[in-house]
Write a protein that binds this DNA or RNA. Structure first.
Lengths: 216, 216
DNA sequence: GTGCAAAATTGCAGTCGGTGCAAGAATGGG
DNA sequence: CCCATTCTTGCACCGACTGCAATTTTGCAC
């Protein structure tokens, strides 16, 4: 909002920077796919990306980070504004589903060989754990946004700050559980379905499971 | 079941082993509390624990692991058998709450200076994440147990293997979301409430949130 | 295009985490 | 008391990562 972010031609410097960054990521994923992540050294990656090993660490603070990549910041997503504006008429679960779907889209926006990254994360719990750490920041943002939405939806809960806080956190954790559910299905499956599809399906299953009154 | 696990006097060898293991953990927590986790080297820890640096790695595969400690194996817990035997009369959520409560009790059974560990985990997201990664194995165990319970509770779902699998996974993730919710409160709080208490409270809040029909 | 300041790249030397190996010490059991 | 097993330890080594200072590249004004 405060920064229009024009970025028509980011300038040579910035373009080269992005190219280098991308080259590193491509290189490490490529090498890891061929020789195994543990066997890949920074020296090899640097050589493949045509930079010095020292420069590698100017771009990523660790070997893992080069694989993990960036995480989107939730408040900056357009879907967040939509979620907040959806008002009380929409189910909070449905809204959450769409929001997390959009977030996962932004997460995978990078046109990198996502499949290789997927395979790496599947095989290396350490990487997975590190990525989960990023989810932590994400969780805080999500909780805040849910609180905002709840406050506009329900005037009574808006008055009780403690209850609002607890319910927001609980809802965000439920949402993230759905994401993890979808993520598992996505990682385990060979089909081409997107992470977002899986998330939406997880939410519908969630609603069904949590609403036993609607079942016979 | 298959192993009665007598352990009256585990023998000198085993006793020394446990002592060394504990000494390492005490040493690293102590040093980390005084100089900061990052400043602590394996050499210092080993010196404080009166062992060689090489021996450190005979006990823990990494510096982080020495802080994180072990995780209980769910199937071995007595509470698991109770959970499975509770039958269809008990709400699956209530049962899950008790089961996870028991599991967290087994987790914190170690009479180590738990407070220091808590402080460390609070300050170091990396450690926190790594501990969460253990939850992954835990999640698989939990899913299997839930599936078993569901199959005995509901004959119709027992017939549909795919549905059983999906619902079990979803329920286990919801349960783990509650655990994370409780874990956060536990880590962030200064009060002396146990992790188990927080988990039980999380489940009651969960049931309340997920049952909108019971509210006005 | 020339000159200059800011930013990026690089080499180097060094610290620390972590592993494989083989020799030596402690333990348990007969 | 002896032997097999297990545990400890020192050593040599690799790879991740950092600080620093020299060098190169880019942005920009003139």
């Amino acid at each position: 909002m405060s920064e229009p972010e024009p970025e028509p031609t980011p300038g040579l410097r910035e373009r080269k920077r992005r190219a280098t960054r991308s080259a590193i990521q491509v290189a490490i994923l490529d090498l890891a796919a061929r020789h195994g992540y543990d066997q890949v050294t920074i020296d090899e990656v640097s050589a493949a990306a045509d930079i010095s090993p020292r420069t590698f660490f100017n771009y990523f603070s660790s070997k893992d980070d080069a694989v993990i990549g960036d995480f989107p910041s939730l408040p900056e997503l357009p879907a967040t504004a939509e979620f907040l504006a959806a008002g009380p008429r929409e189910s909070i679960y449905a809204g959450l589903g769409r929001l997390l779907d959009a977030a996962s889209g932004a997460l995978a926006e990078e046109r990198m060989p996502e499949e290789r990254r997927r395979a790496l994360l599947r095989e290396h719990p350490g990487l997975f754990a590190k990525r989960m750490a990023y989810l932590h920041r994400f969780e805080d943002e999500l909780t805040g946004i849910i609180a905002e939405r709840l406050a506009t939806d329900d005037a009574t809960i808006a008055g009780d700050a403690a209850a609002l806080q607890r319910r927001s956190r609980l809802l965000s954790l439920i949402g993230l559980a759905a994401v993890r559910y979808a993520y598992r299905a996505w990682i385990g499956a060979e089909d081409g379905r997107s992470l977002g599809d899986n998330i939406l399906e997880a939410f519908s299953e969630l609603e069904e499971t949590l609403a036993p009154t609607s079942r016979s």
